[in-house]
């Protein structure tokens, strides 16, 4: 299976390492050509404003939006989730994928001093130790969105058909179960 990790900016290395440890042919994706070669894409943590700027500048945004609307599996962590959200409680970044029926508030868990680790219970996965860094908060979900985990009453891992998004960073903890879950989504279509 060939899975891409958007390598424009952020912690793409950690995602690539996680996927490779799972035996996946993981590719760093920075161009249209590279995007066409993969069967699914992870958008890593990082700065959503930077990624949105580069996605648009390189002509990747419209292609990815189109593919995403046609069933191409995408998993967004943190900044990646912001790019996937249809509704944003902030003017920035204006140009994003807007594929998932979720409403997201950027930096809603606070500044860096409020970044935290916490234990979650994830549906079909179980107990999971999660790292939240200047995390975006999901403040609303549409009827077609399934909530897979919550923290303090807010959804933190959600799925809408072929799309997956988390407020936290499973790539930082060395626990591959969320990545495995995404790979299964890609396999089953």
């Amino acid at each position: 299976m060939r899975i891409g990790v958007l390598g424009l900016q952020g912690d793409f290395r950690e995602h690539l390492e996680m996927l490779r440890a799972l035996g996946v042919d993981a590719r760093d994706v920075r161009t249209k050509e590279q995007l066409h070669e993969v069967e699914g894409l992870i958008i890593p943590g990082g700065e959503s404003t930077t990624m949105a700027y580069l996605l648009e500048k390189m002509g990747l945004l419209s292609i990815l939006r189109e593919r995403g609307a046609q069933g191409f599996p995408i998993y967004g962590t943190c900044a990646g989730m912001i790019l996937l959200a249809r509704e944003l409680n902030d003017s920035y970044p204006e140009n994003r994928l807007a594929l998932m029926d979720i409403s997201v508030k950027r930096n809603a868990y606070g500044r860096q001093r409020d970044s935290f680790e916490a234990d979650l219970h994830i549906k079909d996965i179980g107990e999971f130790h999660a790292v939240f860094i200047r995390a975006p908060k999901i403040v609303g979900v549409g009827p077609s969105v399934e909530i897979l985990a919550e923290h303090d009453g807010a959804p933190v891992l959600v799925r809408q058909k072929h799309l997956l998004a988390s407020s936290f960073h499973p790539e930082l903890t060395g626990d591959p179960r969320v990545h495995k879950y995404f790979l299964e989504m890609v396999t089953r279509g």
Binding site: G10, F12, E14, G46, E47, E117, A118, V131, L172
Partner: peptide, 22 residues
């Protein structure tokens, strides 16, 4: 639910998020 703040994981984690950036 308990939140652990100020851990080395979240400190170095933010730097990881800045990678490839200016």
């Amino acid at each position: 639910m308990e939140r652990l703040t100020g851990t080395f994981k979240v400190k170095s984690g933010l730097a990881e998020m800045l990678k490839g950036g200016v």
